[in-house]
Structure formats: C-alpha cells, structure tokens
Simulated assay, not measured.
Amino acid sequence: MSNTVTVTTWSLEQTSPADLRPSAPAMEPDPAAGGVRIVRAEVPSPEFSRFLYASVGADCAWTDRLPWTYEQWRACLDRPGTETWVAWDQGTPAGYIELDAQDEGQVEIAYFGLLPAFRGRRIGGHLLSFGIARAWDLAERWPERTPTKRVWVHTCSLDGPHALANYERRGFRIFRTETGEEEKRPIDGPWPGAH
C-alpha cells in the first residue's frame, strides 16, 4: 500500500473588491433570533486558534500547525494584519477565517472552514463572503498596512468537497493549478480517536 496520495492544489485570486460575489446570509443576522453572527477574535489566543485549526481541519488532514509551540502560535497571531474572524451559531463557534496581510497590499486567506457539525447549512458561503470583505478593508483596521490590492487563497483536493466551488462562487479566479504526490497525513479528528 502506497504511503503517498495525489493532491491537486488550486491557487485563486481576486484583484478588485468588485470581484466579490457575496452569498446570502446563512440565517437571520439577528443573533437573538437564532442567527449566525461573525465576530473578530481581537485578543490573540494561541489556545483558541489551535482549537479552531484542529477542529475545522481534522477531517481535511490539516497537520502543518499541529506541532507548533505556544510561542509559534503567538508569533503568528501577533503579526500586524493577521485577523481571525469566527462564525458563532447560538453561542457555539461554527467556523473561522484567518486573514494574513502580506507585503504590497496582498492578503491571503490563510485558513477557512467550518466545524463538521455546521457544514451544509449555508454558513460557509456567508462566512467566506464576510471574510473576503474584511480582507479588502483590512487596511482600515491596520493603518500601517498598504491598502489591499489582491486577495488570494489556495485550496486542495484534500479539503472539503465544496471548497473550490465556494471560492469560485464568491468571485475567485484560478491562477495556478499544481498536482503532485504528498505523504498521507493522518485524519484523526481534533483529538486521537475522534473519528
């Protein structure tokens, strides 16, 4: 049995705020009516960010940050222009989008996704639309950053089956496709034995 898997990675971009094609809100925007609300996690918290990363990415084989130390998480979250926006459904975190401001007005959607129990409820399109809009206006919150000229993201065939289509529906265009062999990564859930 092979210890590798063929993985296709798509890199996508938007080059103008007008490229964004927003999704309809997942539910009524009034949290008191049971709707989804999206809030920025303004206090950098390695513990909370690791929880989101491990819980959202568990069944998509997100493993690159799992061995990070507390200090590595803190250094990542403390960079000017790094933002974590969390979707909350009735007080429970449903998913998140992490923005990474880079040089020359580039903003990468570093991570985006939902916890498994919240998928298939139209929350993903709403959260992604909201996060893209925040990528475009990021310099308003970080005056030391150059105004956004490009928002980009990459996704791969290991991610959820609707990831690529969601990005394209929101107005992203593919600018690069790469296929290669990668070592199989364990899919074990947010803690050993979860799946």
Results as ranks from 00 to 15, higher is better:
M1Y: 13
M1F: 12
S2A: 11
S2N: 15
V5N: 03
L12K: 06
T15F: 02
T15G: 08
L20F: 04
R21Y: 08
R21N: 12
P22Q: 00
P22D: 00
S23F: 13
P25W: 02
D30W: 03
P31G: 11
A33I: 09
I38T: 10
I38G: 01
V43C: 13
E47N: 11
F48H: 09
S49H: 12
F51A: 15
A54C: 15
V56M: 00
C60W: 11
W62F: 02
T63N: 11
D64G: 08
R65P: 01
Y70M: 04
Y70V: 09
E71I: 09
Q72Y: 11
W73I: 03
A75R: 08
C76H: 15
P80M: 00
G81H: 13
E83I: 03
E83F: 01
V86F: 04
A87K: 00
A87Q: 07
Q90E: 15
Q90S: 15
G91H: 13
E98F: 13
L99S: 13
D103G: 14
E104T: 03
Q106M: 06
V107S: 03
I109T: 03
F112Q: 04
L115G: 01
L115F: 05
R119I: 02
G120S: 04
R121H: 12
R122D: 10
I123G: 03
I123N: 01
L128Y: 02
S129R: 01
F130I: 00
F130H: 04
A133N: 09
A135H: 05
W136C: 05
W136P: 08
W136E: 03
D137P: 08
L138H: 03
E140H: 10
P143Q: 04
E144F: 05
T146F: 10
P147N: 09
T148G: 01
K149L: 14
W152P: 09
W152E: 08
T155M: 00
T155F: 00
D159W: 01
G160M: 02
P161V: 09
H162G: 03
H162Y: 06
Y167F: 15
E168I: 07
R169S: 08
R170V: 05
G171M: 09
R173F: 00
R176Y: 02
G180F: 01
E181D: 14
E182F: 06
D188Q: 10
P190M: 06
W191F: 12
W191Y: 14
P192G: 06
G193A: 07
G193F: 07
G193V: 07
H195Y: 14
H195I: 07
H195S: 15
H195V: 13
